[in-house]
């Protein structure tokens, strides 16, 4: 035998899962929502998505190659996921330079400053999004009205999101029953015919992506189900107390990026807890904070902030919420 035999500690066989496969699985799961978005927002959705992915991958490449001088690992798809999610969180008529700034913040500040993949405490796409939301509130909240496939890019007609309409309406003293006539119906909300960020509108497509990721075992049910359930529960309580001032739970769940956040943003591996128990605590926190911001805060929606706030608690949750150890409860027969 000419070659040397290999020695290594056990195990000697490995599963077929890899970081790249997981990331591309997430991208695949996001495709239906993207298609819906293109269907309603036309060219703008395509341009914003491509720009966002392009900038994110480019910045990751530049930072890894020239600043950190580490191995360039853009091929694992994580920068693409960040780019796609960033695009999903901005309006489809956002100017290219704002997207570029968002991508730079998401990758540069949100991810690379902490050491790259696996080390960032906060969801990079959301860091980028929230930065843009605070820096460019006008551009970030002038959402195009769904106009069909041939809608242009920056010249789209803009309008408010359903949640924005409700918030503004309540401020000016209108009641929910009046306002409900002004927002799209539930069917429209479900298929995504409303104003909003690029990827947050298509409830049906997002749920499809969720089922795909469950099937491929990319994520578990814990975070999305608990988070949506918490939001439905709290808004439901408020709705039962005063249906005139509070929208019903179904409306809350279908609008304002709850599903996008629950399925794709909160479940980000790096920034979510490690144990099922921890995941449930984390997503209850996100749900509660979202409802608080929406109902009592001045922002019409709060999913991004809620996720970022709970991201900050993840190390603490990981530290104290432990899986049940085998043999912990001694049962004597």
């Amino acid at each position: 035998m000419s070659k040397l035999i290999t020695i290594s500690p056990s195990p000697h066989v490995f599963g077929s899962q890899s970081v790249g496969r997981l990331m591309y699985g997430v991208i695949l799961a996001l495709v239906p929502a993207l298609l819906v978005s293109v269907f309603f927002y036309g060219m703008g959705a395509i341009i914003v998505t491509l720009l966002s992915i392009g900038f994110c991958v480019l910045f990751e490449f530049l930072i890894q190659k020239f600043i950190l001088k580490t191995e360039v690992r853009i091929s694992d798809g994580s920068a693409m996921v960040t780019g796609l999610l960033l695009a999903f969180n901005v309006p489809s008529n956002l100017p290219w330079w704002i997207i570029m700034i968002g991508a730079l913040i998401a990758i540069g500040v949100g991810k690379m400053t902490f050491g790259g993949l696996g080390n960032n405490p906060f969801n990079p796409a959301l860091v980028g999004r929230v930065f843009l939301l605070i820096s460019f509130p006008v551009q970030m909240t002038s959402y195009p009205v769904p106009g069909g496939l041939n809608t242009g890019y920056v010249d789209a007609v803009t309008g408010a999101t359903p949640l924005g309409i409700i918030k503004e309406g309540l401020k000016s003293g209108l009641s929910i029953s009046d306002l409900m006539k002004e927002v799209p119906g539930y069917l429209d909300l479900f298929i995504g015919k409303m104003g909003g960020s690029l990827g947050e509108i298509a409830a049906a497509a997002l749920i499809l992506g969720f089922l795909f990721m469950l099937f491929r075992k990319i994520i578990t049910w814990h975070i999305p189900v608990t988070m949506v359930g918490t939001i439905a529960l709290f808004t439901g309580i408020l709705w039962l107390i005063n249906p005139d001032k509070n929208a019903d739970p179904l409306f809350h769940v279908l609008t304002g990026g709850v599903l996008l956040g629950a399925i794709f943003m909160a479940t980000d591996y790096v920034t979510s807890p490690m144990t099922p128990k921890g995941m449930i605590i984390y997503s209850i926190g996100i749900g509660a904070i979202t409802v608080i911001i929406r109902v009592f805060g001045s922002y019409p929606e709060g999913v991004s902030f809620a996720i970022l706030i709970m991201n900050g608690f993840v190390p603490l949750i990981n530290r104290y919420i432990k899986p049940k150890r085998f043999g912990e409860e001694v049962k004597h027969g």
Binding site: I5, T6, S8, L117, G118, Y269, M274, T275, P323
Partner: peptide, 27 residues
Amino acid sequence: EPEAKRKKIDPCIRCSRCINVCPMGLE
């Protein structure tokens, strides 16, 4: 030969798969 070699080590992405498969409930 091809199966004998380990694959390239990537950073931990905290996917928690190791926790889910640990039969002893460890992390």
